[in-house]
Amino acid sequence: MKKTAWRDYETFTQRVFQAILTHEGVTNVDVRHDVELVGKTATHQIDVYWEFEQAGVLYRTVVSCKDWAARVKQGEIFTLKAVLDDLPGQPRGIVVSRAGFQEGAQTYARAHGIGLYELRVPDKGYVRNLGLDFEAVKAVLHEHEVLLDMPWMRSEAARLGLHAFRFTSEQSDKIVFTSENGTQVITGKLIMDQLFPFNGEDIGRRHRRRHTFNEPVFMDTGESMLPRAKVLAVEIDLEWVVYARTFVDYTLNEFVAFVLKNVVDGRLHRLDAEGRPLPPETGPVIVLPRS
Rank of each mutant, 00 (worst) to 15 (best):
F165W: 08
D67I: 00
T251C: 04
T107I: 14
V62M: 03
P91H: 10
S97P: 00
E281P: 01
K66Q: 10
D86C: 10
G56V: 07
A99R: 00
E36D: 10
R205H: 13
G89A: 07
Y9W: 04
M219H: 03
K261N: 07
R128A: 06
F255R: 04
V231Q: 00
K230F: 08
W68G: 02
A164S: 15
R210W: 02
F213H: 02
T221F: 03
V63Q: 07
Y59Q: 01
T168F: 05
E51W: 05
K2W: 12
L226F: 11
M219A: 13
R32W: 05
T178E: 12
N253T: 11
H44W: 08
F134D: 11
L162N: 09
P284Y: 06
V256A: 08
A233T: 06
D47A: 09
D47K: 13
T61D: 01
V256T: 11
V241R: 14
H23T: 02
F134G: 00
E254N: 14
F255W: 10
V26I: 15
G275N: 01
E180Y: 05
K138V: 07
F78C: 02
F52P: 01
V38N: 13
L87P: 04
V31H: 07
V242A: 15
V242E: 15
F101R: 06
F78G: 02
T79E: 04
E201M: 08
R270T: 07
W50G: 10
E235P: 00
E201G: 10
L252T: 05
T221M: 11
P216S: 12
Q90E: 15
G56I: 03
G113H: 11
D272E: 07
K81P: 03
T212C: 11
E170A: 14
M1A: 13
L278N: 00
F196N: 12
F196Q: 07
A257Q: 02
V26Y: 02
D237V: 02
A19W: 00
Q18E: 09
